[in-house]
């Protein structure tokens, strides 16, 4: 049985939904943060690590997450893994910013 990201030839897939949306500022920002961290100038992480973290998501979470939700999850995962951030400080900051606004 192939893993959740390994989609090629997976049965049960329906027609391709061709509708598109303009990326929100938040999605672009997630993209930019990941790209900066992976850039040759910084090399805080590798694209391969980003992919590995996405692939390691719970299959159900992978399936239902939006594209950049997966990316953000992966950035958080790898930054915690590398000791750059901790889960606690991320959650604290989320609450703090929510309260401020």
């Amino acid at each position: 049985m192939s893993r959740v990201h390994d989609r090629g030839g997976r049965p049960g897939a329906g027609p391709v939904d061709k509708s598109e949306h303009d990326l929100s500022w938040w999605e672009k920002r997630t993209d930019a943060i990941a790209m900066l961290l992976m850039s040759p100038q910084k090399r805080v992480m590798r694209v391969d690590e980003l992919r590995r973290a996405i692939e390691s998501m719970e299959p159900a979470a992978y399936e239902k997450s939006k594209y950049y939700e997966r990316w953000l999850h992966a950035v958080e995962t790898i930054m915690v893994e590398k000791g750059v951030l901790t889960r606690e400080e991320i959650e604290r900051k989320v609450k703090e910013l929510a309260a401020r606004r």
């Binding site: 938040w26 920002r29 997630t30 930019a32 943060i33 900066l36 961290l37 910084k42 805080v44 939006k66 950049y68 939700e69 953000l72 950035v75 958080e76 930054m79 750059v84 951030l85 400080e89 991320i90 900051k93 989320v94 703090e96 910013l97 929510a98």
Partner: peptide, 24 residues
């Protein structure tokens, strides 16, 4: 999602890994 992007960016800036200008 937006709260988390904000939190992660803010923390990475505080730690000196990226700047808001670089993101922009």
């Amino acid at each position: 999602f937006e709260r988390r992007v904000d939190a992660v960016q803010t923390l990475l800036i505080e730690k000196g890994l990226i700047t808001a200008d670089q993101v922009r």
